[in-house]
Design a protein around this nucleic acid. Structure first.
Lengths: 271, 271
DNA sequence: GCCGTTCTGTGGTCAGACCACTGGACCGGT
DNA sequence: ACCGGTCCAGTGGTCTGACCACAGAACGGC
C-alpha cells in the first residue's frame, strides 16, 4: 500500500468502469467485530473510560465465537485503544483507553527492527519532528516543564553514569522536551521515534572508542538547547537541536553511509 | 504512559532501590508469543517476505494453544507487520510484510475518532509534516513524481466533481506529494495523518455554504505548490503548503476554536 | 463492628473439531 | 502432447464448550 500509485497516480478514485473485476474482499469475522466497535467509537457511543460489554455477551450479540471477539480486542489493543483486565465490576473487563504513544512506539520499533525504513530516513524524520518539538517548547513550555528538564540534565551529569542509563536519560530528556511543547500528536510521534531508536543507539554506543567524550559533548549540547528553550528562542532552539541530533548520529554511525540495512535490535553490550 | 513524567521527571531510569516492590507483571500467553516472534525479527532470522511456521506447529513448539498464537498474530497484523492468507504452499500462511502506512493510518484514525488529540494539535502536526514533505519533494522529486502530481491536478479540475471525490483526490495529491520526497517514514506519517482527517474533513465540507468556492481556491493553491516543487524551490513550497493547509482548515472549521471535542468520524453527508 | 469466607462475573487459556480455500498432483480424454 | 477435471493435502478461519485465576461484593460468624 505504501508504494502504490506509480506514475499514473492510480488511487482510490478509480476511473469509472476500470478494474470492476478487482478481487472481492472476504472479511474475516474478527474484522467485522473490529468494525462494529470502531463504529461505536466513531459515533461517540463509546469513549475513553467506557467499558465494553463482556466478551461472552459481545460474542452472543454479534453472533460470533468468543475467539473472534477476543481477536478483535487484541487488534484494538495493539493499536492502543483498549485494555483488558480481569476481576469484578470496577476494574472489570475491557476498557477504552488512550495509549497512543505506547502503541506508536511499539509499531515504529517493530518496523525499525524490520528495517522497513532506511536509517537515514528515520534520522531525517526525527530531526524534523524534534525541530518542531523544540519550537513548540520554546513557545509553550511552562515552569514545571523546565524544572523537569533541568532535573534530567542534572541526573545526566553523574560522572559514574553508564551508557545504558545515559541513553535512558537522554531519551527521557527528549521526551520531556517534546512534552513541553504541549502538542499531543507531535509529542507521541517524537516519543515513538526516539524510543524506537533506543536499542540501535545503545548498540552503536557500545562500538564507540571514546564514548565518554561523546557523552560529555551531548551534555553540553543538551544544556544549550535547554537554555534556548528557557529563553523562549524558538529559532535558536530548533537550530541547536538539529545540530545536536545530526552530530550525535554522525558520531554514532560514522561519517560513512549509515548502513542502510538492519539497524538490528536486541540488547547491546552496554557499559 | 503518554502523560507520565510529571514534574519530577520520573521515568524508566528509576532511582536506585526505589520502588523495588512495583507490581509484578503477569504476561499473557499471547504476549509471550509476540515477544518470541519479535525476537526473531530483531535478530534478523525473520525478515520481510519470510513465512512464519504454521499456526498449529507454532502452538506446539511454543507449548501454547493455537488461540494464543492466533491472538499474537492478530496483534502483529494490527501493527502492519504480518499478513495471513489461506491456501497451500506458495501463498500459504502468515508472512512478514511491511504495511506501515496502513497500520499507521488505522491507528491514527482510531485515535482521532476517539478525540485523543485536539483537532488543533493534529492540524499543527500536519502542517509541520507536510512542510517537511514539501521541502523534501522540492529537493528530490523525480520526473515521474511530477507527472503523477500533474495528473491528479488535472483530475481535480473536473467541474462536475463532487465533494467526496475531490476529497479523495486531494488526499491522493498530498500523499503523492509526500511520496515525492522519497523519505519512507515522513511519507507514511503524512499519509496516516491526511488519511485520518479524511472523514472529519468531508463532514465539515458538507456543512459549508459555498463549497465550490473553496474547491476553486484549493485548486489554485495546489497548482502554486506544484510549481514551487517543480522549480525546486523548497522555501516557497513549504511556505505555500503551510498557508494552504492553514487556510483550508480555517475555512472548514471556521475562525472559532475548532471544537476541541470529537471531530466525529463516520460517513458524512457529502455532495 | 470487624474479618474471613463464599459467591459471582470477568478475562485467560486450552483442546478438539470442522469448514473454506488454495495450489499441486494426478489422471483421464482428446 | 496437450488440456481439462478431480482429488488431495495443508493452511488459516471459525466454532464449541470447558476450566482456571483473579478481583470485588455480599454474606455470615465472631
Amino acid at each position: 500500500m505504501t508504494s502504490m500509485s506509480v506514475p499514473d497516480g492510480t488511487e482510490l478514485p478509480e476511473r469509472p468502469s476500470a478494474d470492476a473485476w478487482r478481487p472481492v474482499h472476504r472479511s474475516r469475522a474478527y474484522e467485522l467485530v473490529v468494525e462494529r466497535i470502531e463504529e461505536q467509537i466513531a459515533t461517540g457511543a463509546l469513549t475513553v473510560g467506557d467499558t465494553l460489554p463482556a466478551e461472552r455477551e459481545l460474542s452472543e450479540r454479534l453472533q460470533v465465537s468468543r475467539a473472534a471477539v477476543r481477536e478483535a480486542i487484541r487488534s484494538l489493543e495493539a493499536q492502543g485503544a483498549v485494555r483488558s483486565s480481569v476481576g469484578s465490576r470496577p476494574t472489570a473487563g475491557t476498557q477504552v483507553v488512550a495509549m497512543t504513544s505506547d502503541a506508536l512506539t511499539r509499531l515504529l520499533r517493530l518496523h525499525v527492527a524490520l528495517s522497513n525504513f532506511p536509517l537515514a530516513d528515520v534520522v531525517e524524520a526525527r530531526i524534523m519532528l524534534e525541530r518542531s518539538s523544540a519550537t513548540l517548547a520554546a513557545q509553550n513550555a511552562a515552569e514545571r516543564d523546565l524544572t523537569s528538564l533541568r532535573e534530567l540534565l542534572d541526573r545526566m551529569d553523574d560522572p559514574t553514569i553508564d551508557q545504558a542509563t545515559f541513553n535512558d536519560l537522554d531519551t527521557a530528556f527528549h521526551v520531556a522536551l517534546a512534552e513541553s511543547g504541549h502538542n499531543r500528536l507531535v509529542t507521541d510521534m517524537t516519543i515513538a521515534i526516539r524510543e524506537s531508536m533506543k536499542a540501535p543507539i545503545l548498540q552503536a554506543f557500545g562500538t564507540l572508542e571514546d564514548s565518554a567524550a561523546l557523552i560529555e559533548r551531548l551534555r553540553g549540547e543538551h544544556r544549550e538547547i535547554f537554555e534556548a528553550i528557557a529563553e523562549g528562542s524558538a529559532q535558536r532552539a530548533s537550530e541547536r537541536i538539529e545540530a545536536h541530533i545530526r552530530g550525535a548520529h554522525a558520531s554514532l554511525w560514522g561519517g560513512d553511509s549509515p548502513s542502510d540495512d538492519a539497524p538490528q535490535s536486541g540488547s547491546a553490550v552496554a557499559s
